[in-house]
Design a binder for these strands. Structure first.
Lengths: 105, 105
DNA sequence: GTTATAATTGACAAATATTGTCAAGTTAAT
DNA sequence: ATTAACTTGACAATATTTGTCAATTATAAC
């Protein structure tokens, strides 16, 4: 029972399910095969536009893929940071505080 | 009842409380006054090393300041992203999952 | 084993973003 | 009006990210 944890795994699985080659998807994405290979294996980060494009090309739910992608960017930002988890919680609190403030507008 | 929301506000308040000039703190930090001014006003992001240094210079709790700083970096990462809050939650879940995994090691 | 196709890897280049310097401009107090 | 502290914006230096390319590895078919 294998889970798709990372954006890369999701992309690769779906590409293979559709029987597409790296070359083909890379062409549609307008990047070199090497880049897509690295993105799928998590060696490189994709750009947001590429994630959006890939969702279209591979018929993946765009929102889910973006959430996945953004969460990885967030985790990348706090990698090796001992206080990362606490910072995440503070960030959430700040967002919430801002949301409730918005009600006034 | 004014809260110190941002890193910059904390830094400025504490510097003023200590009666230090931008010039003086900037010198200790080894950057131009302009940079520190911008950091305090939230116009520029500080580097992590600078945050650590500033905590020392201004006698601020280092962990608290770092958490503050990291949370801002995280929020910066998802600014303007509609799905940012959801991504934050997913990021937290991933961290937790990883924590429990670690027990095995 | 050779050939052919797909994917991976690593060195390097191009593009973008971050951080810094400097000089000129405010602001506020005297 | 002078002075000191701070601010601002243009630009330079640096660092990071993203991309290209050529060489290599892996796999399958013969």
């Amino acid at each position: 029972m294998k889970k798709n944890n990372s954006t890369g795994e999701i992309l690769r699985k779906q590409r293979e399910e559709k029987g597409l080659l790296l070359r083909q998807v890379a062409a549609l994405l307008d990047v070199d095969t090497a880049i897509l290979s690295k993105i799928e294996r998590g060696e490189r980060k994709a750009k947001k536009e590429q994630i959006v494009e890939l969702a279209k090309i591979l018929d993946l739910n765009q929102e889910d893929l973006i959430i996945q992608f953004l969460s990885e960017r967030i985790l990348y930002e706090i990698q090796d940071e001992e206080l990362g988890e606490k910072a995440l919680k503070v960030a959430e609190q700040k967002i919430k505080k801002n949301n409730t403030k918005q009600i006034k507008d």
